[in-house]
Design a protein around this nucleic acid. Structure first.
Length: 669
DNA sequence: TAAACCCCTG
DNA sequence: CAGGGGTTTA
């Protein structure tokens, strides 16, 4: 901090005033600046003047930098902040407040006032420590705190309410409250005789003023933080690292909640990045941006509601100081963000790299529709041939792996919409630090897929995804530090809010699981369906191919398939009917179709080549009827009519039966 | 007139 | 099974 160094004489009157004042109205943030610097350093002028000047200086610095604390500023504050820079330190201090040795104490010990000051410090710190105990860090035994602590808390609340009343006043009045006093030139070292009551009253006023200022700063900060967070989200590749490092330095015992919030923020942003990245691989630019915005908004809502909810749930027992104490760490976090942005936004580098290697996966999917004129559907190969593996069906339990349709940045050679979205969903559900393997809540379709396609820990995914080294370092460090995921924070509302993200991912899943091309599996399924229906309507086709994104081309292809099936079917019928006539069969009742008849074997060989499907009896009946129809028509010489088969078609088309529901789930494939 | 169907060819 | 031309139909 850029304070002019005072000389080494202590102000006696201020010392007496401090004893009588109620320090519990002070903010921990201020406490760091005020109490933790050697009080002896304030020699000339009223100590209030010094403190207030420093506070105003802080405020100005914050305003000028738009609440951005530079790295050096953070470092400075960390040096000043001996009372609460780390949980370890603060714990030690809490255990033995009197043992606290401030920075520079080595030179202060010899001071005549040292003992007196230390005793005072011990009292003040004791009070502060009581105030600082957050609900989160409070132990069961803490409820037995002495009455003075409770009184302090009550007084703190009253002071908070008082400040809130004053806050409604115009802002310039606040400056006028403490402004003249802190520049009072008459406040010199020989003013021992000044009126203590007056001094204490002024001190109180100034403290209130400072408290108001800080509260406004905090509100402003939260406002700015929540507003600017979305645009930072996709560029904060190293934020988690920064969070961890700043955490370890600044977290104090009363900052349990802050630590959680930091992790929530980091974790949400972390997941956001993954979501954004996966979406980038998956979707078009506009959809990607939309989804990113949605997710970003959700994440910020999530974090925001964490703040609000925690504040409201603990607000009754939380003193204003405890509420305020959230600001320093957060300010530091934002400061770090801004520092990185000003340093040239290194986060954009990974994005650029990712964009450079981004494939045109979507273009692949849309090629059949987007790059071909509407009436050239027939020019395309109607079956997407996928070598050399079993084709993918999102709900197909026998699927080995999806086909390697393209190389994407993840280098999932078997990467598909299905897997990306599932990975995404998994990340949102369980965080990037969890493994995909054998999770009890794994999506069923995921579980049934082959292990080699899904049994990937996050780090493996990160490796495949060519994430930047900083990204990897972040995850590695976060894992090493045992960073908690949102789910592990024991914050139900966090889970609820992240459920919104999962809902979005669910929608994403539904969309990306739809195939935009027919596969051999679909062909096989269609052939089996032919045993039930020879003339399926387009609605039936859509219902029984739910994993196919229907367009005109796909519909035509499926219709053509069934047309070909019918063609073969009728050809066989005509052939066997004519054979029967040649064989001299005179009675139509002598023409039957059974499972061991030659006709059926021909049909079964065509539609059920693997013979792993039990052909329904109804198909036998329909086949027999069809054979009879052909026999009758040929016998009566109706085949001389060019359209003699149409009558037969009319009969047969009425013999369709419903396709079993199981076909909708592709369970036969 | 687009869609469905038929018929034929490869 | 795909493709294409011809025909029918709504």
């Amino acid at each position: 901090m850029n304070l002019s160094l005072p000389d080494q004489t202590m102000h006696n009157s201020s010392e007496g005033c401090l004893e009588d004042d109620k320090p519990d109205v002070m903010l921990p943030c201020f406490r760091r600046n005020m109490y933790d610097e050697p009080l002896a350093s304030y020699s000339s002028g009223s100590i209030i003047s010094q403190l207030l000047r420093k506070t105003i200086h802080n405020k100005r610095a914050l305003d000028e930098s738009h609440f951005y604390l530079s790295g050096s500023a953070a470092a400075d504050s960390s040096q000043e902040d001996q009372c609460s820079i780390s949980s370890k330190d603060s714990t030690v201090e809490a255990a033995s407040p009197g043992a606290h040795v401030p920075i520079g104490a080595g030179t202060e010990v010899e001071h005549p006032m040292a003992d007196h000051l230390q005793a005072k410090r011990a009292r003040v710190e004791n009070i502060i420590r009581v105030m600082a105990g957050s609900p989160n860090s409070r132990q069961p035994g803490d409820s037995e705190r002495c009455d003075t602590d409770a009184r302090d808390t009550r007084e703190a609340r009253e002071a908070y309410r008082e400040n809130k009343r004053k806050q409604r006043l115009p802002q310039h009045q606040e400056h006028s409250v403490g402004g003249p006093a802190n520049r009072r030139p008459g406040s010199s070292s020989n003013s021992d005789n000044c009126n203590k009551d007056e001094e204490c009253h002024k001190l109180k006023e100034q403290l209130h003023s400072m408290q108001r200022l800080l509260r406004q700063l905090q509100e402003k900060f939260l406002q700015v933080y929540n507003q600017e967070d979305p645009e930072n989200n996709d560029r904060d590749d190293t934020e988690g690292v920064e969070h961890e490092s700043t955490e370890s330095r600044y977290v104090s015992t009363e900052d349990d909640f802050e630590r959680k919030n930091s992790r929530v923020t980091a974790e949400c942003k972390d997941r956001m990045k993954v979501v954004g990245y996966l979406v980038q691989q998956r979707e078009s630019r506009s959809l990607q941006d939309t989804l990113k915005q949605e997710l970003s908004r959700a994440v910020n809502d999530c974090v925001d509601r964490v703040f609000k909810k925690e504040a409201s749930s603990t607000g009754q027992d939380m003193s204003p100081q405890q509420r305020m104490c959230s600001s320093p760490e957060l300010q530091i976090g934002v400061g770090a963000d801004r520092k990185r942005q000003q340093a040239g936004s290194p986060q954009e580098q990974p994005q650029a790299e990712e964009a450079a290697v981004k494939p045109c996966s979507l273009e692949y999917y849309e090629s059949s529709e987007a790059h071909s004129p509407p009436d050239q559907t027939e020019a395309l190969s109607l079956v997407v041939r996928k070598p050399p593996v079993t084709p993918l069906s999102s709900v197909n339990p026998t699927v080995k792996r999806p086909y390697p349709m393209h190389q994407n940045p993840f280098q999932f050679s078997y990467s598909t919409p299905l897997h990306d979205s599932q990975i995404l969903e998994h990340l949102l559900k369980y965080g990037p630090h969890s493994s995909f393997g054998g999770h009890p809540c794994m999506a069923p379709s995921m579980d049934r897929n082959s292990p080699d396609s899904v049994d990937l820990p996050w780090d493996a995914i990160a490796m495949r995804s060519k994430v930047t080294s900083s990204h990897l370092a972040h995850h590695a460090r976060a894992s090493a530090l045992g960073a908690v995921t949102v789910d592990n924070l024991c914050l139900p509302h966090v889970k609820i809010e992240c459920g919104e993200l999962q809902s979005m991912v669910f929608c994403l899943n539904v969309n990306v699981n739809i195939q935009e091309g027919l596969t051999p599996s679909h062909l096989k399924k269609a052939k089996l369906m032919f045993f039930y229906t020879r003339y399926p309507s387009s609605n039936v086709l859509k219902n029984f191919f739910p994993d196919v994104k229907f367009n005109r081309c796909i519909t035509s292809q499926l219709i053509k398939w069934f047309s070909n099936f019918r063609e073969f079917y009728y050809i066989q019928m005509e052939k066997f009917a004519r054979q029967a006539i040649v064989d001299g069969i005179s009675d139509i009742k002598d023409m039957t179709v059974s499972r061991d008849s030659e006709l059926f074997r021909a049909l079964n060989m065509h539609y059920n080549k693997a013979n792993d499907f039990h052909v329904p009896d109804r198909f036998m009946e329909v086949s027999e009827i069809t054979l009879h129809e052909f026999y009758s028509a040929i016998s009566s010489a109706k085949d001389s009519d060019p359209s003699w088969k149409k009558a037969i078609y009319k009969v047969i088309c009425k013999l369709d039966s419903d396709v079993p529901e199981e076909f909708k789930t592709s369970s036969y494939l």
